[in-house]
Write a protein that binds this DNA or RNA. Structure first.
Length: 269
DNA sequence: CTGGCCGTC
DNA sequence: GACGGCCAG
């Protein structure tokens, strides 16, 4: 064999090897994200992802979620609401679609029809109104939970608006929300979508220097009480749900913030 | 903003 | 089922 030919073969093998190794690394990284949600980057919204008690984390462009197949809804939906996400655009509401990324099969919207319950967004459509794709994405059935209309349009809506206010005031917040899921719940539809008796929303903000946190736990009924009446510690929600909300935080900071039910760092004006 | 319902195709 | 119009908290 000529020396030139040998060099050529070696070069091809080397380049090919590097190519396939990079391909392998990319695949492995994606798999890590899907399997555990543990592959994180400090500058993306994946940093604050909670753990999954169900083993099924799904990532969309505009939010991530952990799907509970027995309850046919997400146990949490998480996303970052940045300043530049706040938008006045008025997109037409699309139709709800089954989330194709949920491998066990997300619920059909038909379960909600004439059930008496709203298809309540967990990641609000208004928080993803910065483009049509992100907006439409919130209309996947993995992002909704059965909610009483008076609750959804009442105190839950008020809280969502307050979150947008805080996002503008504090240069963005990271949001986690969902219903409290357990094994003793009313269900709707053929697929038996569970109706939560409580809903929670947790915010973390590390954009203004010092990391701060606040959590709300609201019974599934409307209320005219002020929002701060529903502030609880993250620890208490973890106890109810079994979810570890901010595992990537440094432990002492996590322990301190999650034990607190103080809202002094959050403006309720 | 949060949504549902109904008639029409 | 998809769509447009209309209604309510």
């Amino acid at each position: 064999m000529k020396r030139k030919t040998l060099y050529a073969i070696m070069a091809v093998l080397l380049i090919g090897g590097v190519y396939f190794y990079e391909f392998y690394l990319e695949e492995k990284e994606q798999q890590d994200i899907v399997d555990t949600g543990k592959t994180v980057k400090s500058d993306t919204n994946e940093f604050f992802l909670p753990t999954s008690t169900t083993g099924q984390i799904v990532h969309h462009e505009g939010y991530s979620l952990s799907y509970s197949e027995p309850h046919e809804q997400a146990e949490w939906v998480a996303y970052e609401l940045k300043l530049e996400h706040l938008s006045n655009s008025n997109y037409k509401r699309p139709y709800f679609e089954i989330d194709p990324a949920v491998k066990t099969g997300a619920a059909h919207w038909r379960n909600y029809k004439k059930s008496g319950f709203d298809r309540g967004h967990l990641c609000p459509a208004a928080d993803r109104a910065y483009n049509q794709v992100a907006y439409n994405e919130t209309f996947l059935t993995s992002n909704i939970s059965p909610q009483r209309h008076d609750f959804n349009s009442g105190i839950w809506n008020t809280l969502e608006q307050k979150v947008r206010y805080w996002a503008s005031k504090y240069n963005g917040v990271f949001v986690v929300s969902g219903g409290v899921l357990n094994d003793n719940m009313e269900t709707i539809g053929e697929e038996q979508v569970a109706v939560p008796n409580q809903f929670y929303k947790i915010l973390i903000d590390n954009n203004t220097g010092e990391t701060k946190m606040i959590a709300f736990l609201i019974p599934h009924e409307n209320s005219i009480l002020p929002l701060y009446k529903f502030v609880v510690s993250v620890d208490s929600i973890e106890e109810l749900t079994g979810i570890d909300f901010f595992p990537e935080l440094e432990d002492s900071l996590e322990n301190e913030l999650e034990a607190s039910s103080s809202y002094k760092d959050w403006s309720f004006n």
